[in-house]
Design a protein around this nucleic acid. Structure first.
Lengths: 359, 359
DNA sequence: CATGTTTCTGGGAACGCTTGCAAGTTCTCT
DNA sequence: AGAGAACTTGCAAGCGTTCCCAGAAACATG
């Protein structure tokens, strides 16, 4: 491997001079610069970034990105935006998929050991230990930025880290409320819910709270039988959850689904069961990923901006690394994207229809 | 920042001893080990991986992964499998999205500079310069593994690198042939094609070749008017391509689509245009991503194993890094996953139907 | 020509770690 | 008890950079 020294020898100058040339510093004669350039070319010299950051003790030009599940296009789009900004500034991103919960802690340790310049966290669960590592990172001056649902009270992050991290928030409670509000405005009264959360924690969840508060605002009682929960947030979870709801035979005319991924599963279930969407059943969900444009029918979904999330996170970290004081908080606007999966309540009740058919 | 030296001072031993403890080497007394452990605990010591790999000159425990587009779940699933294996072996992965073509070269330089232990490439275009960098990596002993379509002749990679890299291949030509063969067996004779390749390079493309050879095998002439090409491979490209095909009014009864992403767009187009799939038009595509299970109707698609791809690539690199000689070639089996988007040719011809309606 | 400035250049100490070496310590076996 | 083997330990030289510092060279000024 060719090193600075090799280049120096080849060019007949000292190591320091080569270093100056490589880093574009002043105080190098044109003659020397020329010869060094030639040597670099001849020897195919590439600087050793490891040695470089060791010596400077400053930047490693690496950013860590913790996402819950890259195969979910919600996260994939955030990742893309993040990577794109990082790249533009000469930073490299270390990707970590945290769906398998135990990985988070190890990855945080990795970040510390690798002297990562900044860490972005989106949708990953943090336990006590993990938060400890985050504090360690903060103490070492490594900026952290977190994307999260507003008021995510179950997560101890908020309290422990205070305002030392950057935060992008989006109000999923408000989003869910808007979605339900819309359904109510379309005449729906019996509205089911498909949530991806532990049953017992249901009313800790922002989306569930939004669901409830919209109903309550209209004097509609919450019917527990209309609620299905699953621990996963995947297409198959949506498929099974919807199946469960249909099986319960609880004549509802609309369903709120936790996210697009699950909604795709739910849609698929409806199709298999001969339930027409939206004629027999309206569906609204959250995320508004690109996928939701291409389902059949296209999903009415609450838009949570993703590109903005990724970009804010990357920009925040980069600014902090350069010693700046960028705004550390961003609240993203959620809004309902109206498409075809939800409509005015029909006169037919599909649950009755199904039960007639099957019984 | 606490260093080895700090720990040594705190424990009252030498730096070397601490190093030995940290690396679990033999020849350390129980007493010393104990004290060092305590010091590490007390000082929250975390080794500096940069210094470590600089000193050893060996592994950096980082793998580079170049994928074309993470937001495409085909690539996302490969990425997940790759990351998962890497993680299990204590490796970290640097993710690069190469859809914006110019990034590839810079990333390869990064890999060299960061002393990345291995590089995996999937679906990224390589020009002359890029191949040069790959050779540079190989010369430095960095293993490389590439996932690609079998016989991808346009790509200069094959020739230049010879058999110095690991390769996972899948025969997309055979896949396309199977798909068309299936359509023919279902009575289809006029079969359209939606390809994501430059028009002029069409017959260089393996999928297109498979399409053609299947038709030829049955004495069906290729009708250029049934072929639409687009440079992108995205849902919207599929949407537009399908639109174009329908507009041409070229009564075909089935369409072969380049990949699932485009097929989703095509499906969406059909739905908007009132073309029923598969009653009016059969669709088959390639990739068989998880998405294809959840479209409406679910897509009949040629399965290209993704998890296996990611795993092979990671395992190959890891084995090579450890000095092993793993099998450097894997041919993945493609097979047709039959679902509902393709069926026996109907008696109705939807193109005629549409033109009747619209004219 | 002596002196002061400015521009260039190389030496060498650091960065945090590993590792070969040699000296010191403890065992083990006669 | 003594010799050799086996175990512990610390020293110091790297790994490839950066960067401070001091000295050399070039130029300007009186």
């Amino acid at each position: 491997m060719t090193t600075l020294r090799d280049v120096a020898n080849h060019a007949g100058v000292s190591v320091s001079t080569v270093s100056r040339v490589v880093n574009g510093k002043e105080y190098v004669s044109e003659r020397a610069r020329q010869r060094v350039m030639e040597a670099i070319e001849a020897l195919q010299y590439q600087p050793n970034l490891l040695a470089q950051s060791l010596a400077t003790g400053k930047e490693t030009k690496q950013l860590g990105l913790l996402v819950y599940d890259i195969s979910n296009s919600y996260f994939a789009e955030i990742t893309m935006a993040f990577e794109s900004i990082a790249y533009q500034h000469g930073y490299t991103v270390i990707l970590c998929n945290t769906a398998e919960g135990t990985k988070t802690l190890k990855y945080l340790d990795m970040f510390i050991q690798r002297k990562t310049d900044g860490v972005a966290i989106v949708g990953s669960e943090m336990g006590k230990e993990e938060v400890g590592r985050l504090e360690m990172l903060l103490d070492r001056g490594v900026p952290i930025v977190i994307a999260r649902e507003k008021g995510w009270s179950v997560n101890p992050l908020t309290d422990a880290l205070g305002d030392r991290t950057g935060v992008v928030e989006f109000d999923t409670r408000e989003g869910a409320r808007m979605a339900i509000e819309f359904l109510i405005s379309q005449g729906h009264r019996r509205i089911g819910g498909l949530f991806s959360i532990p049953k017992k924690g249901l009313w800790q969840n922002r989306r569930a709270l939004g669901y409830r508060s919209a109903l309550e605002a209209h004097g509609i009682p919450v019917d527990e039988r209309l609620l299905v929960t699953d621990l996963n947030t995947s297409k198959s979870a949506g498929l099974m959850g919807m199946g469960e709801l249909l099986r319960r035979n609880v004549d509802c005319t609309a369903v709120f689904v936790y996210n697009d991924l699950m909604a795709m599963g739910a849609l698929s279930c409806c199709q298999r069961m001969g339930v027409r969407v939206p004629e027999d059943l309206s569906i609204v969900s959250m995320d508004d990923t690109e996928d939701s444009l291409y389902t059949n029918p296209p999903l009415t979904s609450v838009r949570i901006p993703r590109k903005e999330q990724g970009e804010f996170m990357a920009n925040y970290l980069l600014a902090r690394i350069q010693g700046g004081h960028p705004p550390s908080y961003l609240q993203l606007h959620v809004q309902l994207s109206l498409r075809e999966s939800a409509s005015t309540v029909g006169d037919k009740n599909m649950f009755r229809r199904i039960s007639n058919e099957t019984s």
